[in-house]
């Protein structure tokens, strides 16, 4: 690696002669090794899916949730350093609360995305802090009666502070498989977001996580699914109920031919009780 040994990669907020900020790039490495997360936009909302590899047999199934809620209408999941993700979510909650105090309305997704990216960017500016070691996918839908536009929004925020809107996005270890799968799904001729329902999206998100897990087959995992939809959750961010969760897992296993004979099956079933 050209960066190592030059001395330009030892401190945050330092440019190398060719204009790179290595510490931020290294933070990106923490993300690349993180667990796979997927966000998908559908007709009237967004769905989040996270692969939780089971690192410890003694973990309580169904607890230690990775997907979090920023405000009633905003969900968030992230790959990378989990504690950094929680830090960001806490900041998001503060922003949402302060927006509500100031304007008396729920925070629109674009405003939240700007505020959060500003916050993350600030952590690349000083050598007294380090950048966030996460890529956060967040989004939701704000009902028009709450001052929104009923249109789902999905963003991914990266360690350097850049934040873009997506139709579907993935990060973490299995991102390459997942992203190409999302691309295939969205660019298919018969794909129309107006007919892509919440339940379809949950199934597809589950399938994509199962596919992305294939390179990591030897490890058991729990799948976590949440959504935010006008039709299914009244615009609130919630975990997917057990029946729909089970259906999605069933579909994912059938489509990918994975998991049927694995012992991870039990863990998956337990998960959403």
């Amino acid at each position: 690696m050209t960066s190592v040994g030059t001395g330009y990669d030892l401190s945050n907020s330092v440019f190398s002669p060719d204009g790179r900020n290595f510490q931020v790039e290294y933070a990106g490495k923490a993300v690349e090794n993180g667990s796979t997360t997927v966000g998908l936009k559908f007709k009237d909302g967004v769905v989040f899916a996270v692969e939780k590899t089971i690192t410890n047999k003694l973990l309580v199934p169904g607890r230690n949730r990775k997907i979090q809620t920023i405000d009633r209408h905003v969900g968030c999941c992230y790959s990378g350093l989990i504690p950094d993700g929680k830090h960001l979510v806490n900041r998001g909650r503060e922003e949402a609360s302060s927006f509500k105090k100031t304007y008396g309305k729920n925070i629109p997704l674009y405003a939240l995305s700007e505020r959060l990216s500003q916050y993350v960017q600030a952590y690349t500016l000083y050598n007294s802090v380090r950048p966030f070691g996460i890529a956060a996918i967040f989004g939701g839908v704000l009902k028009s009666e709450n001052g929104g536009d009923n249109k789902p929004q999905l963003y991914m925020l990266e360690p350097n502070g850049s934040c873009f809107g997506y139709k579907g996005i993935a990060s973490g270890k299995g991102r390459q498989t997942a992203r190409s799968e999302i691309e295939k799904l969205i660019s298919a001729d018969d794909f129309d977001i107006e007919t892509f329902s919440a339940k379809d999206a949950v199934k597809e998100a589950a399938r994509i996580i199962y596919l992305a897990h294939e390179d990591n087959k030897d490890k058991d995992f729990e799948l976590e699914l949440s959504w935010c939809s006008l039709s299914e959750t009244d615009g609130l961010h919630k975990f997917v109920p057990k029946e729909i969760y089970d259906e999605a897992v069933q579909y994912a296993k059938e489509e990918t031919g994975l998991g049927e004979d694995e012992d991870s099956e039990d863990n998956d079933e337990d998960m959403d009780e």
Binding site: L10, Q23, Y26, G28, K29, A30, P131, G133
Partner: peptide, 15 residues
Amino acid sequence: NYDGDTVTFSPTGRL
């Protein structure tokens, strides 16, 4: 070189 403080990532993204 990367283990002197908590604000430096190693090239592999470790702390």
